[in-house]
């Protein structure tokens, strides 16, 4: 994992994470700190799965 690919991976995860946090904020009705924490962790799991899914499909 050269520095460049690690950077690319981090950027992709961050992009997915930000998108999914926004999605979570759209889903919930009242926003408070606990919702944000749960939303951030769920978005992190979603980002990891998104990246794993993309890699598993392309990597033959």
């Amino acid at each position: 994992m050269t520095r460049r690919t690690a950077l690319a991976a981090a950027a992709e995860l961050l992009a997915w994470w930000a998108g999914l946090v926004l999605l979570w904020l759209v889903f919930i009705s009242t926003v408070d700190t606990l919702e944000r924490i749960v939303g951030a962790s769920v978005a992190a799991v979603g980002a990891l799965l998104a990246r794993a899914g993309r890699r598993s499909v392309i990597w033959r």
């Binding site: 999914l20 979570w24 889903f27 919930i28 769920v42 799991v45 979603g46």
Partner: peptide, 9 residues
């Protein structure tokens, strides 16, 4: 990922 986030939501 969207479906996973929806499920967890």
């Amino acid at each position: 990922p969207v479906a996973l986030v929806t499920g967890l939501y």
